[in-house]
Design a binder for these strands. Structure first.
Lengths: 177, 177
DNA sequence: TATTGTTATACTCTATAACTATA
DNA sequence: TATAGTTATAGAGTATAACAATA
């Protein structure tokens, strides 16, 4: 892809990815075109969990994409492979429902994973409408590597939030997984 | 709460918005096409803050869209109007940077808000390249209503997470706003 | 030369609808 | 009839590039 940092991985070389604004603005000396005082208030937005969560999620996904850029795997692809790896033989509907992905979209996700020989669709004998999903041999090897990189990404999250905060966050959101 | 608590008001009978799966599966008795035991493990996904955050963010945004459905305002539109309302005269670049929105995308967002007579672009005298953004009179009135509905949405979030958890979440993510 | 707003393109993601082949 | 997988479409949202007016 070249776009999203083939990067030496750690580095955080922010390839094409914009750093979060707001905080960053105070680093350079310009405040003329913004406001006289240089700070733009969020008003009611500051009290909305959804706003903070959206901004955080963008940061996390960008770090994930960057950290797994060398293997060209995005968060959704990783989640699909992980669930199939842990539950071989699942149908597409089962995976879609479990991960909250539209079944129509899962079709394309699987097309691309299948083309890369990471996942295979096996005609189910029991119900010939459905496909049993499995990782290929190559997929299993690849997933192991993806998991190592994803663990590295997770360390970035822990660095950013603090170990205890990350733990607390996972606990607070445990109902949504 | 009936799953996603669309709440009494707004009607907005979940217009097409799927309830979160996963938890829901155990309510109906079918587990044949999933797995024998009926539970699909997340494996490594369970340890990723990004996964939980993504699922949560989807829930929050769906509730926001539902709760403000009667006034047809989406989260990004609300964030733009709120920031302009609290900082009248900002340029498009300033708003885009503050909220992490691409300036190219903000153009279209403002087009639609301007067509609805909620926001106006005023040629800046100081720098004639830029526009000073303001709410219209109608926009100010409307924003007050949007804020009341958004506060109601935020109460849904508090119900879902628990008051203390919501507070802790906002605190943990305060760096990202 | 650099920046603001704009237009355009492309790709991801979400939300639907409809089709097919099975059940 | 209903369901699993598929195809198609439309609208957000993200990421870029390029252009005109202005600095």
């Amino acid at each position: 892809m070249a776009r999203n940092s083939p990067a030496p991985r750690s580095a955080k070389s922010r390839a094409g990815i914009r750093p979060l604004p707001g905080r960053a603005r105070s680093e350079n000396g310009n405040a003329h075109s913004d406001l006289m005082n240089g700070e733009i208030g969020l008003d009611a937005l500051a009290g909305h969990a959804g706003y903070a969560v959206r901004r955080f999620q963008i940061w996390v996904f960008q770090d994930f994409i960057r950290t797994l850029g060398a293997v060209d795997i995005r968060p959704t692809q990783y989640s699909v492979m992980t669930v199939i790896g842990a539950n071989p033989g699942l149908s597409q509907m089962a995976v879609a429902k479990r991960l909250g992905i539209e079944r129509a979209r899962l079709v394309h996700l699987l097309d691309s994973l299948e083309q890369r020989d990471l996942v295979s669709r096996v005609k189910s004998a029991a119900d010939r409408r459905s496909h049993a999903l499995h990782l290929t041999a190559r997929g299993r090897t690849a997933l192991a590597q993806f998991k190592r990189l994803a663990a590295e990404h997770e360390r970035h999250v822990a660095e950013k939030l603090g170990k205890e905060n990350r733990k607390k966050l996972l606990q607070i959101l445990s109902d949504f997984t």
